[in-house]
Design a binder for these strands. Structure first.
Lengths: 155, 155
DNA sequence: GACCGGGTCGGAACATTATATCATCAGGTC
DNA sequence: GACCTGATGATATAATGTTCCGACCCGGTC
């Protein structure tokens, strides 16, 4: 499967990114990251916890949330606010080498749940301009677009 | 205070909007709407519940959530996903007469908590274009911009 | 070696946000 | 009156997220 290869690559790169920054991708954090990457759609913290318990019987909510916080901090995953769920950061294409927080947008399919990350410069620019116009100093923008993905729309 | 007048107007208009649609702005719903409008910043459901209890001793979570669902449905309030909080819909300026769901964006100040609703056509258009480009059928977009508002930035 | 300090993790309890379910009541319709 | 519908009352429970304390490891430093 191609996805497996992609995931392996992503994990290796995550490792590299952390090392470069003096952060440590511990086995626990790596496991959680792998679970997030393995999922087809954004995953909830407690779904991750359930899976994690198979490997680590003692796992509790803080176990997962600490790992997620770390991964969010490092920009390796994102949180989808509308779903209270987490998704692997997809850098493909755009030139951010895992910036801690890079501008991005999500397309969330209501039918199949698949969530796609894009980084549209026009959207980013329009948001920056809108903020500037009212003297607002932008720190981070959440853009979550809900609807029907191409595949589900034609079916 | 000007805000009181504004609020009165908003409540009257809400009443009118509901009637026009055959929906009923019951006393409970009206009270919840008023509490939301009265708040300076987005309010959580349980904060509303606490206030509501003063007027309705029997109020429970479903009491508030049902009212909020109705108000969301009617487009009289919005939910701020990043804060799990609710805010009155501000139509001022743009021409939507309480559409059920009109495109809008939030500017959330991390310092003072104030949250401003805007409706920037460029942002809306860029999002529509981005979705169309990948064959995504847009239903609704959440745009929540966090940062520092003009007032807090200069202070 | 002994000691300290930071970072990580285990584990219990708790806080916050939201929903499910069933009962009740008022108003309209047949 | 019997029946339906929409709104609310009331209890319980689910889902999501945090606080707190203590243990442990590891890299310095004396």
């Amino acid at each position: 499967m191609a996805e497996v290869a992609t995931r392996e690559t992503a994990l290796k790169e995550a490792e590299a990114v952390c090392t470069r920054r003096g952060a440590v991708l511990t086995p626990l954090r790596r496991q959680v990251l792998e679970l997030v990457l393995r999922a087809e759609a954004p995953v909830g913290a407690y779904a991750l916890l359930d899976q994690l318990k198979a490997m680590r019987p003692g796992a509790a909510p803080p176990t997962v949330y600490r790992a997620l916080d770390f991964l969010l901090e490092q920009g390796l995953i994102h949180k989808v606010e509308r779903l209270n769920a987490y998704i692997g950061c997809n850098e493909s294409g755009h030139g951010h080498s895992h910036d801690h927080h890079h501008p991005h947008q999500f397309l969330i399919c209501r039918t199949c749940g698949a969530t796609m990350e894009i980084a549209d410069p026009a959207v980013t620019h329009a948001i920056e301009a809108a903020a500037r116009r009212v003297g607002f100093v932008l720190a981070e923008a959440t853009v979550e677009i809900e609807g029907t993905c191409a595949r589900c729309a034609e079916a």
